[in-house]
Write a protein that binds this DNA or RNA. Structure first.
Lengths: 231, 231
DNA sequence: GGCCTGTCAAGAGCAGCGCTCACTTTTGTG
DNA sequence: CACAAAAGTGAGCGCTGCTCTTGACAGGCC
């Protein structure tokens, strides 16, 4: 059945709340996100906001899901614009997209990959799936590269740190590449976000690197090498 | 001249404020650090706290310096306990110390390497020096390894992303290793903190890796390889 | 001893916050 | 048109950071 006018109005208000909340996130940060301020900007009295959002943590959950989804969509789209056989190109597209999105949306990035908000536990049943999209996309790239024979192995790649965990994950996602590939994928995943976080969070001093993008590109290529990607 | 009783009492109170603030940081986070709550726990009235700390941001600066100093001391001590010629041992000691300290002091780690506190600008003239101690220590390790001929170069290591910036930094710290070494040092630095942040901030799911320490050790060795450290 | 100055604590007060509750107004629909 | 559900109102509680005025007290100087 078609949505009633009431449902439409409600959805429009909910979307508007999310939009204002995203803006406020930039200036106040997640810990000081103010429901009163959002209500004020929305033009309703402070208590009326609770008709749409049960509490502040609920709004945070909506923002987390919203952020993971936006980043996941951006990454998926960037990857799918590159030839399936160009594994290095897909990897650099993934890395570049994460960095670009994070620099464009530092507050949302911080909500996802920065300090956890004290006293807030993201409900796993709602956030895990969108939250794993980037690492799943990265694992699919290395899996495809392995499948196509474009993943170089090293001499001591026959042993891995956590065989049980790695095997469980490999079977969960039906990965055929050797365990060491998944281990290196996890390292590159963490390293990638380390590079992006340092830049977004201002860990590099103000006048240390004149062209952070060029530095990131160089790091991306080295990480591709660490991954064993050829071509 | 000896410190007056006044000065002694004042210093004792300041140290006590810092201690309580560190505790509160764990539960409230830096953005919601409450001067009133600290004053209450100290047993003085809320306004009296401003005799010791000019404002909330000033307390944050004290905590930032305190944190960088504690981490820097821990890293320096761990490194100096390893033979000067054991460059791999010094590198893994540095990495392990960062991880151990971060897991033991997640709130202080988050203050240093997590999301910047919105609206708070750390005064560079007071925080830069303690804040660079870890990367300086890492650079000294790679420099020493290069000096001792224990740093492997790669074929395309003759070109570097930002020659001017890298050369400026090399001369500032009197580094003799080639530019590519510094570039890789920067990547490993970011990657290291990426691994630690993922673990401290709970980016790995609750039941993904049964033994995060073992995973970190494996990643450390791979990062040492990326650095080109031999033996 | 008396006084003056600088330090410290107290407490009231302002504006903002999350959230609740009793209440009124609006609105879609049988 | 009537009526119930939904949306909005405004007072109120206890908390926050921060300011300002007021008063207690100790050390140095005459």
């Amino acid at each position: 059945m078609p949505p009633t006018p009431r449902q439409l109005a409600r959805e429009r208000t909910e979307a508007e709340i999310l939009r204002i909340a995203r803006e406020h996130l930039c200036t106040t940060g997640p810990a000081n996100l103010s429901l009163r301020a959002i209500a004020r900007e929305l033009g309703i009295v402070s208590s009326a906001i609770y008709r749409y959002v049960s509490c502040r943590d609920d709004l945070l959950t909506l923002l987390v899901i919203d952020g993971y989804t936006a980043l996941g969509d951006a990454v998926d789209q960037a990857i799918s614009a590159v030839d399936t056989r160009d594994h290095l190109g897909r990897f650099t597209a993934l890395g570049r997209t994460i960095r670009t999105w994070a620099l464009a949306e530092p507050a949302r990035y911080a909500l996802l990959y920065g300090t956890p908000v004290p006293g807030y536990d993201a409900p796993g049943e709602r956030t895990t799936e969108p939250g794993t999209r980037v690492i799943v996309a990265l694992a699919r790239i290395t899996e495809q590269a392995w499948h196509d024979g474009h993943l170089r192995l090293e001499s001591r790649d026959d042993e891995v740190a956590l065989p049980e965990d790695v095997d469980r994950i490999r079977s969960e996602f039906a990965l055929t590449a050797p365990p060491a590939v998944l281990e290196r994928t996890a390292l590159v995943w963490a390293a990638l976000f380390g590079c992006v976080s340092f830049e977004v969070f201002g860990q590099y001093g103000p006048d240390t690197f004149s062209d952070p993008e060029a530095l990131f590109e160089a790091h991306l290529l080295r990480l591709a090498g660490l991954l064993g990607l050829t071509r």
